[in-house]
Simulated assay, not measured.
Amino acid sequence: MALNPPLNRKLRMGLVGGGPGSFIGPVHGIAAEFDHRCTLTAGVFSSDPERSKKAAPSYGVDESRTYGNYEAMLDAEARLPDDERVDFISIATPNHTHYEIAKAAVEAGFNVVCDKPITLDLAQAESLLKTIENSDVVFALTHNYTGYPMIRQAREMIQAGELGKINAIRCQYIQGWLAGTSEDDGGQLSAWRTDPAKSGAAGTFGDIATHAFQLGRYVTGELPESVSCHLKTFVPGRRLDDYGTAVIRYQDGAIGVLTASQVTHGRENDLELEVDGTLASLKWRQESPNELVVRRAGQPHQIYTRSPGTGTMTPLAEASSRLPAGHPEGFYDAFANLYNAVFDDITLRASGAAFERRDTVYPNVYDGVEGMLFIQQCVASSEQDAAWMPLNYAEARQ
């Protein structure tokens, strides 16, 4: 089979971020190249031009395609012939830089894959949305947990009505890496995440609760109505929350409970989703991602496993699997599944074909705006003693 038909070539990637000490930048690079549909061609790997040049060899990027800042990259790449310039820009930088980089890339005509949250605040997200809607680019947001096969299995089972009407959504995202860590320790990853100027109005809720909220939305399709939230900062001197709990009302009557922590000792990356329906309930946990538990009253519990070729998987989940049953797939695979869906649309755009912009397999700009509204309303609710705040976008913006 040809590669990215009808282009019949690899897509070319430009990466912003991913320099020394970065976690998510290298993940983007690996995930994008995972299925050999793309090659990392150009990059700005640090805000320091010298550090950017030093990082380039580790990505296999030639010095001639390594730039000192994103403006220089966009300008130089736009001047290259069609058969040389990058096809898309991936943004793996701190939150406060997302808006300016993404907006400039879209205005220059480049497709964009942006790390979450989409921007620093809701106003920036709304501005970026208008820019994207006035363009023809593909835009994706890397809520990468949506790429797990068993998450996609859960989504398709719910869409098929197997759980009945959705009653409740419970999601928790529990980490411990910020417990006992202060910003004075000088850690690169912790410093900007707990700085309001770089992270935004929320700390833990902006960093990981957005993943939990979006995962519940992705799997169930339930539309949020309002939220009551309580945020807490346990580490003395920290300027942003490191723990929080939210109760969410959904428009069809379902209720959600979301807890996020980065100060729970001994917890690593424990993202867990449970959904209750009138016919059944399900549970998925990121630390054992190849299993999905489904329970029905009066029946033995069912454990669905990532087992392609057995007839037990839904079509999207099957298509999202690479290895035979029993060979674990994980974080990189899920991230690569997101990129694969984005590549399909980038290829459609490049070949002049139409592509879907709102109802996509991957999270898009509309999910990004909704996520920023969620953060804003959670912070506002917490500041007003957990008062209920609208999450319905039209109502919230009145």
Rank of each mutant, 00 (worst) to 15 (best):
K130C: 05
R238S: 07
R249C: 06
I169N: 03
G237E: 05
P57R: 10
G253P: 04
M372W: 09
L215D: 02
A246W: 05
I174D: 04
S47Q: 15
D115Q: 06
P20Y: 12
F139M: 04
W388P: 02
C38G: 03
A209T: 06
A260C: 04
A353S: 10
A336S: 13
Y99G: 03
V361A: 10
E291G: 10
R239A: 15
D344A: 08
I255L: 08
E107T: 08
G109E: 04
G21M: 03
G60Y: 03
T194G: 11
I346L: 04
L338H: 11
I303N: 13
V293S: 13
G266D: 09
Q175V: 03
M157C: 12
L338I: 15
E318I: 00
G330W: 09
M150K: 15
A108I: 06
V16F: 00
I174T: 07
D344Y: 07
L231A: 07
A72E: 14
E383K: 12
K10M: 11
Q251M: 14
K54Q: 14
G60W: 00
C229S: 14
Q124Y: 09
P300C: 10
I30D: 15
T278G: 03
A336W: 06
W284N: 09
I303D: 13
T245N: 13
A254N: 00
N8I: 01
E356T: 07
I30P: 11
G19H: 01
Q262E: 13
G14P: 02
D185V: 11
P196V: 02
E156K: 06
H36W: 13
R238I: 05
Q159P: 10
L223W: 14
S58I: 14
Q188K: 15
R239T: 12
V257Y: 12
G43R: 00
M1A: 15
Y99E: 07
I132Q: 04
T233A: 07
N111R: 07
G311H: 11
L240T: 05
Q175T: 08
F213G: 04
R249K: 14
R349E: 03
T146Y: 11
S22D: 10
E84H: 01
Q398M: 11
L11E: 02
G237Q: 00
N134Y: 07
N364Q: 06
P26W: 08
S320E: 11
G164C: 12
E268M: 09
K10H: 08
Y243Q: 11
A353Q: 13
A212V: 00
E156Y: 08
S351H: 02
H143E: 12
H211I: 01
D115A: 08
M157T: 09
F23C: 10
A179S: 14
G216S: 02
A56I: 05
A104D: 01
R322W: 14
N167R: 08
K130W: 08
L7E: 00
Q398F: 12
L282D: 12
V86T: 01
V61R: 00
Y173H: 07
T93M: 08
F331K: 13
F331Y: 14
C114W: 03
A108M: 07
R306C: 15
V263C: 04
D75M: 07
G309H: 06
T93Q: 10
D48E: 09
E274N: 13
C114L: 03
L178T: 12
E183T: 15
S182C: 09
